[in-house]
Amino acid sequence: MTKLFVDQTIEIHAPASKVWEVLTISENNQHWAKEFSSGGPQFHLESTWEMDSPVYWKGQDGTVIVEGNVTAVEPNKLLRFTVFDVRMEERPAVTEEDGITFKLAEKEGQTLLQVLQGDFSAMTDGQYYRDASAEIWDKVLPKVKRMAEEN
């Protein structure tokens, strides 16, 4: 079966450390994470962003909506974590590359940010969810860019 990933890249006129802060600090990521709520409760990500540490997508009232674990981390360069809706009865098996991956490559004060999300092929209606996620990242990446460039 063909793997289904969202794979998008954006160039940001800011150092990788600024982009990293937008991605990982709850006060910052709440501004872009709300795009994933699809009209539902707004939420943000909380984690220590250390290897194997939990990642929680929390609503404004502190309710955990999505959870996962950090599976790869290299500050200012790479962050990968799994993503599971807490309402799912069983979690699918994941490979090392599954989840959301941020890759940051800095050159001369500019950062190329790549996001990979998937593998959606393991899900029923995976193509639908892959396409829906791609549309959300189309909104998220420009917000991350704006925030990193303004700070």
Score class of each variant (00 low, 15 high):
residue 49 W to G: 05
residue 50 E to P: 03
residue 53 S to M: 01
residue 54 P to C: 07
residue 54 P to W: 02
residue 54 P to D: 00
residue 55 V to W: 01
residue 55 V to R: 02
residue 56 Y to V: 00
residue 56 Y to L: 13
residue 56 Y to D: 13
residue 56 Y to T: 00
residue 59 G to H: 04
residue 61 D to P: 08
residue 62 G to E: 08
residue 63 T to C: 01
residue 63 T to Y: 00
residue 63 T to P: 01
residue 65 I to P: 00
residue 65 I to A: 09
residue 66 V to Q: 06
residue 69 N to Q: 13
residue 69 N to Y: 11
residue 69 N to C: 10
residue 70 V to I: 13
residue 71 T to W: 05
residue 72 A to T: 04
residue 72 A to Y: 02
residue 72 A to V: 02
residue 74 E to G: 00
residue 74 E to M: 05
residue 76 N to A: 07
residue 78 L to H: 06
residue 78 L to D: 00
residue 80 R to E: 01
residue 81 F to Q: 03
residue 82 T to C: 02
residue 83 V to S: 10
residue 85 D to F: 15
residue 86 V to N: 06
residue 87 R to F: 11
residue 88 M to D: 14
residue 89 E to V: 03
residue 90 E to M: 00
residue 90 E to I: 02
residue 91 R to I: 11
residue 91 R to A: 13
residue 92 P to H: 09
residue 95 T to Q: 06
residue 96 E to R: 03
residue 97 E to V: 01
residue 97 E to R: 02
residue 97 E to S: 05
residue 98 D to G: 05
residue 99 G to H: 02
residue 100 I to Y: 03
residue 100 I to Q: 10
residue 102 F to W: 12
residue 102 F to G: 05
residue 102 F to M: 06
residue 103 K to Y: 11
residue 104 L to E: 09
residue 105 A to H: 15
residue 106 E to Y: 09
residue 106 E to N: 11
residue 107 K to I: 08
residue 108 E to G: 13
residue 109 G to R: 08
residue 109 G to E: 12
residue 111 T to K: 07
residue 111 T to I: 11
residue 111 T to N: 09
